[in-house]
Design a protein around this nucleic acid. Structure first.
Lengths: 350, 350
DNA sequence: TTGTAGGCGTTATCAG
DNA sequence: CTGATAACGCCTACAA
C-alpha cells in the first residue's frame, strides 16, 4: 500500500486537507507549511492517486480515442494516418495535462463496446472518433450519453449536432485540378474508390467545379471508380483507350496512386513523362514512391491537434458552440507531374 | 450524477452489496434476485463506475504503453510499426478486459514524465515499452517502481531483470543470407545503419555466420554502413566499383531499401535483374515498393500480442518467471530477388 | 443467501 | 490560514 495523503499529513503534523491544498497549490495557505509539507512528500515519496481524485472530481482528465475499424487491405493506408493523428492529439493533450486511452477492439462491434465501456465506466471525460462512417453506432451513442466529443472526418448523420474536424475536400480537389490546369493539362482524369463515401463525392465535385470554371464541359467519362483493390490496371487501360486520353490523373488514395504507378510501368509508360499524377493524402507511401508522388497533404497532425482542442474546450465549457474546424490542405510537390506545352518540359523544382 | 449501485439497490429492494455481487456475478446469490437486480439495472440504465472500482480494488485493468520518442526522419518508418504493435497489444488486451493508455509526449523527457504519471498515479496496472534504448530512464524507473512491465526490443541494461519480447536478429540475418545463397548468389553485400545499435551488430553476425558456414571467408569489404539518410547512392557506388561487386544486397532497413532502389534506377540498373535485394522489416513501404521488396517479416503484431500476454501474466502472478520471448521472423517473398542460374563464378579462393 | 459497516485516497464544505 | 467531516461509488469482511 503506497503512501497516502494521510501519511504525509501525519508526518508533517497537519491535517489531510492541508496536504490536499498543498497539492492543488491553493493560495489560502502559508508558504511555510507549504514548504514543510512538500519536504515531507519528497521524503516519503508521496505520489497522488489519480484514481481517487478522479472519483471525487468526477473527471479523469483523460480523452478516449475511438480507432477506426480496420479491415484487410484498407487498414494499411490508415496506418500512418493513425500514428500522425495520435501525435497531434497527444501534443495537445500533453499541453493540457490530459491522458489518452484508446480502444482495443479489432471489429466494429468490439470497438463500439470499448467506447461504451470508456464512457459509461467514466474512464474518460471526452472522446475523439477517428473516422466518420454512415450508419455507425458510435456517434449516436455519444450524443445519447451527452459526453463531449469530436469526430475527425465529416459525420453523415446529425451533422449539426456534432463537432467535427475535417478537410475541405471540395476545395482540395479544386486546388489539385487547378494545379494541373496551371501546368497546361486539359484532359484530366479522376480516379476514386467507393463513390458512396462523402469524401469521394466532394472530391468529384471540386474536380468538376475547377474544370467548369475554366469552361471545360462536364464529362463523366473522365471519372472512374475502382472498386476492387489491385484493379488499377483495368481502369488505366480504359483511360488509355479513350479517343482523347488524359494527360494527367487525380487519384483519391495513395494506395491507388501506387497501383497506377505500377500499371503504368507494366505498360512501359513513364511518370511523369507520359502521365502526370497527383494523389490524395500525402503519406510516407507517397513520399517514398519512385518517383515521389505529388500529393495533397491533409495535415493529419493538425486534424488531431484541433480535434483535441475542440473536445477539451467542450469539456471545460459544455455550452460552447460546437464549432467545427476545417483544416486547409496543401499540395506537396513531388516528381510525378510535369508541365505540358512549355518550350521544354519543365519540371517543377522539388 | 449518474445511477449508482445504491439507486439500483433501492429500486430492487435489496442492499448495495447484493447489487455488487450481481455485478461480479457471484455465485453466492440466488438466480432469482440476480435476475431481478439485472432487470432493474437495465431499467434504470445503470453502468458501473470503473474509477470507483479501481480505487477499491487497487487495479484499473489498464495497460500503459510507452511510445517511442520520435525524431525527424527516423519516426517515419516507425510509424507502421506503432500501429501494428498497438493492434497486437489491443487484441490481447481486449480478450482479457484490459484498457490501454498511451503516452502523449513528443520528447524523451515528456514521455518519461508521462510514464511516471501513469505509474505513480496508479492509472495503470502494467506497462509495455515499445523500444529499447541504451541509457533510457524509463526501464530503471519501472524496475524501481516494481510495476509489471515488458519491453519490446532487447534491453541493454539489466537485461536479466526485465521481461522482453524481441526477434532473433542473428538468426534472421542468417536466414536471409542463406536464402540468397540458395539462389546461387556468392557475392552478397550487407548494408546497415548505425552499427552501434545491437540490432545491427546481431545482423552482421548472422550474415557472417551463414557465409562462413558455407566456407566463404569473412570479408568486411562487403559490409557497409550508411550514416546519413539519403546517402544510399554513395554506398551503392562503392559496391559497384568493387573488383567483384555483389550480386545481392541485404539491407537492414526498409527506408534504406527504397533508397537503394532509387539509386539503382538513377544508375539505369534494374532490380532484380542487376541486383537482388532483401530488406529488413516488412512494412507497407516494402509491400508497396515497385518492385515489391523481398523482406524479413518481424511479425510486429505478434510482438505486441506477446508483450501484452507477458505483462498480464506478471500482473496476475507477480512471481512469474520473467521469461522473455523470441518471435520468429520469416521471409516474405517479393519481386526484388532472383535466382542466379549460371554457375558462373567459382568459390572465391584467397 | 443477504445485509451492515467500514474503507479505498481525494476533495469539498463548513466551521473555527 | 487550518482542521474536522462528509461525500465520490464500489467492494468485502463479518454478521445474520
Amino acid at each position: 500500500m503506497a503512501i497516502t495523503i494521510k501519511d504525509v499529513a501525519k508526518a508533517a503534523k497537519v491535517s489531510p486537507s492541508t496536504v490536499s491544498r498543498v497539492i492543488s497549490d491553493s493560495n489560502h495557505i502559508s508558504e511555510k507549511t507549504k514548504k514543510k509539507v512538500r519536504e515531507v512528500m519528497e521524503e516519503l515519496g508521496y505520489h497522488i492517486n489519480l484514481n481517487a481524485r478522479g472519483l471525487v472530481q468526477q473527471s479523469t482528465k483523460t480523452l478516449g480515442i475511438v480507432l477506426k475499424y480496420s479491415e484487410n487491405v484498407a487498414w494499411k493506408w490508415v496506418n500512418p494516418f493513425v500514428s500522425e493523428v495520435l501525435q497531434g492529439i497527444g501534443s495537445h493533450c500533453h499541453e493540457h495535462g490530459y491522458s489518452i486511452m484508446i480502444t482495443t477492439g479489432n471489429t466494429e462491434e468490439e470497438i463500439y463496446a470499448d467506447t461504451v465501456k470508456m464512457v459509461q465506466g467514466k474512464q474518460v471525460d471526452g472522446i475523439i472518433v477517428l473516422y466518420a462512417k454512415e450508419g455507425d453506432r458510435v456517434v449516436p451513442f455519444l450524443l445519447e450519453a451527452e459526453i463531449p466529443f469530436a469526430v475527425i472526418g465529416k459525420p453523415v448523420d446529425r451533422i449539426n449536432e456534432v463537432m467535427y474536424v475535417d478537410n475541405d475536400n471540395v476545395q482540395a480537389a479544386k486546388d489539385a485540378t487547378e494545379f494541373l490546369l496551371s501546368k497546361h493539362h486539359q484532359k484530366i482524369g479522376f480516379i476514386g474508390d467507393n463513390p458512396t463515401f462523402q469524401v469521394i463525392q466532394d472530391r468529384v465535385d471540386g474536380y468538376f467545379k475547377a474544370l467548369e470554371w475554366k469552361g471545360f464541359p462536364r464529362d463523366e467519362g473522365y471519372v472512374k471508380f475502382i472498386r476492387d483493390p489491385e484493379d488499377e490496371g483495368a481502369v488505366l487501360d480504359e483511360f488509355l483507350k479513350m479517343k482523347n486520353p488524359p494527360t494527367a490523373l487525380i487519384i483519391s488514395s495513395p494506395l491507388q496512386g501506387v497501383g497506377i504507378l505500377k500499371s503504368m510501368q507494366e505498360n512501359h509508360l513513364h511518370v511523369p513523362e507520359d502521365m502526370s499524377l497527383i494523389v490524395f493524402n500525402k503519406t510516407l507511401i507517397t513520399d517514398l514512391s519512385i518517383p515521389k508522388l505529388t500529393a495533397v497533404d491533409t495535415q493529419t497532425y493538425q486534424l488531431g491537434y484541433e480535434a483535441s482542442r475542440g473536445v477539451v474546450e467542450l469539456i471545460n465549457n459544455p455550452d460552447t458552440f460546437k464549432r467545427s474546424v476545417i483544416i486547409p490542405t496543401k499540395i506537396e510537390l513531388g516528381e510525378s507531374h510535369r508541365s505540358l506545352k512549355s518550350a521544354k518540359p519543365e519540371f517543377v523544382k522539388k
